[in-house]
Design a protein around this nucleic acid. Structure first.
Lengths: 348, 348
DNA sequence: ATTAGCACTCAACAGAGGCGAGTGCTAATA
DNA sequence: TATTAGCACTCGCCTCTGTTGAGTGCTAAT
């Protein structure tokens, strides 16, 4: 039903949303009738506004104040009224120049992306590195720590380094380890971790109580090393910028928001939801999503290299965010990062 | 002169500081004269308070309110009045049990320490991992990324993994790299990075336009890899706990504090100051230290393994912090981490 | 040297009143 | 029939005001 808005209602809704985005204050009928030349008196605008309120797209904080868009109002705006600016050649170049990716480690790239996203949007930048499981095997090394404990170092095709401590037979010698890693490096190169796991499982079955002792060791070691999931890496940049937004101006709201950012779990959950989709996605934080992020909106897009290691980046800001400006930034940045990852990719 | 306080003045100052620590409110003469049985009337207490104010140890927020300790007042309290609780056997065991270090990477250990420090103290936990330069060489590996770019992976003796992208001659083959890393691993094992650098410098001079091509390559590569400083790693835990403290209850203060925490630079600077000293150190944040941390105090202690890789951990809280409780926690944790690092240390 | 007594100060709170932006409704208008 | 002018009404916000209470400094008595 909300789709059957007539043109006038749409125009007025759009005007209200956009006014509200810039002012963060309830929008009155007078302001609408004057600033946008619809040639309508405040009274007429009021009638339309009352209708929009009945439909659940607007609400008024109290009896005698202007209207503000509801979550659904924003949703409608985003779905049907928002026209995203496309960046021109110049803007793209500027954006490209904002990022400094020279000789950077993956960690640095992720952090830099977050920083720039936050700086450009003036909201909070989020970057979730590609999940361990979605990366492509490049190299593995083992370093002996204390008795019976090994440090496994894994490098993905894009240069992402993960490490992990695993238990191991104390009798393993250094040259054993070298042989094992050589074996694994030649066998697993180019496979995704998912494929690696499948392969390990299969080989272990085939090789069950078999002769090649070294291979057996290699398999059990790599299984321990690559089986479990690794914690997601999330980079949050410019959290304090959110504190400047009027919707988070009270101490309680600030505290809640910073807590939500600090735990990271909530953010990771939210970013995960977008992992399957393509292109830019917009989540409007309301009761539906996590309570601690009420009043926040999230604009995300995935990035990946050609072999498919998928990460997510985006911007989190107040629901009253400047979507038409931020969406193209997120979109372009995701494409840019994807290209950079391909460039980084190891070539033999 | 502040040292020449008579006993009564000291007692009253101590009482005021401790009352203020628990209440966060200005302390009046009546409260002091009643709660602590000095057998002094409020009027007498007032006289002493006036003296202490003249000495710059107390101040009153406005004409007719109680007194609060100044920065110098706290300093005096810490230097001469504070008696730190020593942990009994039970408390130590509890503390030990709070930490879970099994099979953890260095990053995880640092993060865990921050988390626990913050949880126990209810303030913000800080952990700065040992600086690259202070670590002891354990192993180095090279992974080829795209044309002419190498990923260097360095593992310290304690299992701290650092990586870095370096430029390199594109004609280097994988077996070259292997030979080089083997050479470096045998030559540099057990040296601190400082010693490594000295050794590299020396060998490069001795070897100037010399015969062994591989060695030359190894030297220039490791120079590029190990010469520059690596960014400090700082873990901040429980920043939001600070927002619950009354001294940071206004939006402006919250924003300032979160900004200060977010930049990390200020914190790293502050933690660096304590690196040379031994034992627990206390910094009272005032005009003297960074303006953005006004109202904060920092309790730190260094940790290190036997070979000397030094990191710093601590707790940052309001100046009005419960020093007698937090100091032993920080102290004991630093010792504990030092021991854990030694246990982690690679043994061949 | 200590303290009771007293006048004084000042933040914090609560209530009253005015302002103004904005609304809903009704009756007049094109 | 759609639009609009007019009007009474609402309510957040600001300011002003008076009250309260905790706490002080000073002085004179002990």
């Amino acid at each position: 039903m909300a789709d059957t808005l007539n043109e006038r209602s749409q125009n007025i809704l759009e005007a209200i949303v956009e006014d509200y985005i810039t002012s963060a204050e309830p929008v009155g009928s007078r302001a609408i009738s004057r600033k946008h030349n619809f040639n309508l008196s405040p009274a007429s605008v009021r009638n339309v506004m009352a209708d929009l309120e009945d439909m659940g797209l607007l609400c008024s904080p109290h009896t005698s104040s202007g209207r503000i868009p509801t979550g659904r109002g924003f949703q409608y705006y985003i779905d049907t009224l928002l026209n995203v600016r496309t960046l021109n050649r110049n803007e793209k170049q500027n954006l490209r120049n904002s990022y400094r990716f020279q000789n950077m480690r993956m960690e640095d790239i992720m952090q830099e992306v977050g920083r720039v996203l936050s700086g450009l949007s003036q909201y909070t930048g989020l970057v979730m590195a590609p999940k361990f499981i979605s990366t492509v095997f490049r190299q593995i090394e083992f370093v002996r720590l204390s008795q019976g404990r090994l440090l496994m170092i894994y490098v993905s095709e894009t240069g992402l380094v993960q490490n992990k401590v695993i238990k191991a037979d104390p009798s393993l010698t250094s040259s054993n380890l070298e042989q094992i890693s050589n074996y694994l490096n030649s066998e697993l190169n180019g496979l995704t971790i998912q494929e690696v796991r499948a392969k390990l499982k299969q080989e272990m079955q085939e090789d069950r109580d078999h002769y090649d002792q070294l291979k057996k060791l290699a398999l059990s070691l790599s299984c321990a090393a690559l089986q479990d999931e690794v914690e997601d890496q999330l980079y949050v940049s410019g959290a304090s910028l959110m504190l400047g937004q009027p919707e988070f101006s009270t101490p309680e709201q600030m505290k809640r928001l910073i807590q939500a950012f600090e735990s990271k779990k909530i953010l990771i959950e939210l970013l995960d939801r977008g992992q399957s989709a393509q292109g830019v996605q917009i989540f409007i934080g309301s009761e539906s999503t996590h309570i601690d992020l009420e009043g926040c909106s999230l604009i995300t897009s995935n990035f990946s290299n050609q072999k498919g290691a998928i990460g997510t980046l985006g911007v989190i800001g107040p629901v009253r965010m400047n979507y038409s400006q931020v969406v193209p930034i997120v979109d372009f940045t995701a494409r840019l990062v994807s290209r950079v990852l391909d460039r980084e990719t190891a070539k033999d």
